[in-house]
Design a protein around this nucleic acid. Sequence first.
DNA 1: ATGTCTCCTAAGAGGAGA
Length: 260
Amino acid sequence: MRIATWNVNSIKVRMEQVGDWLTQVKPDVLCLQELKCETDQFPKDYFSALGYDATIAGQKTYNGVAILSRHHLVDSLIGMPEFDDHQQRVVAATVNHVRVISAYCPNGESVTSDKYHYKLNWFNAFNGYLKNQIASHQKVIVLGDFNIAPADLDVYDPKAYENDVLCTDLERQAFQDLLSLGFIDAYRHCHNDLPGFTWWHYRMNAFKRKMGLRIDHALVSHSLLPELSDCQVDALPRANERPSDHAPLFVDLSSSNPNS
DNA sequence: ATGTCTCCTAAGAGGAGA
């Protein structure tokens, strides 16, 4: 199975780019973030015509997550049951006995912002949520925009981002606390010393100047580790004419057939 | 470098969020 994630920064603007990418890369599953549309505005028919079923958690203007799948999606769950939040940031569903979670973690804005506190609270809730998910499902994969660069290797200029949002010790600790539940950072596991940037600012010609951060991640449960064969960032869509600021990331699992 | 992009309100630009 190939399972991917992409923060598309508006599905209405990027629909055809996503369709083209699905046609070329043919993932079994694609997790989407920042839909920026309400659930009933999501172009479900367009992706259905490409062979993808969808579970959607949208809202007006901001946030919004979805899971697209070429296989049957079961046991869909919108949001975190024990965290009351009108911001649609989490959706889960099971595909071929693999629990897939699409997450759009809060950005935080800046360390002095109320949004930064919301971010840390949110990660605390997300930790509890994933603890439950990993306890109730054998194979779990969490993909999405985490808005955390876990280490200096994940930042083009660590000095410039030192103690800045996305890179603070508290955020990095929150990320490590997720791993401690029993997850592995798939990209870092497969690539010891490559940056693997997934996001580049729209400003400053950041993409062409390789000024990126690795803030989109795929976490696999220990039970999936034997199946993990590859994890790649596809930076090509970032060079599109009207790109999302994020590039897609995908994981290849060697088995996970319906009977395993 | 308050630099770019998207969406909203509301009838023009400007604010929010990233």
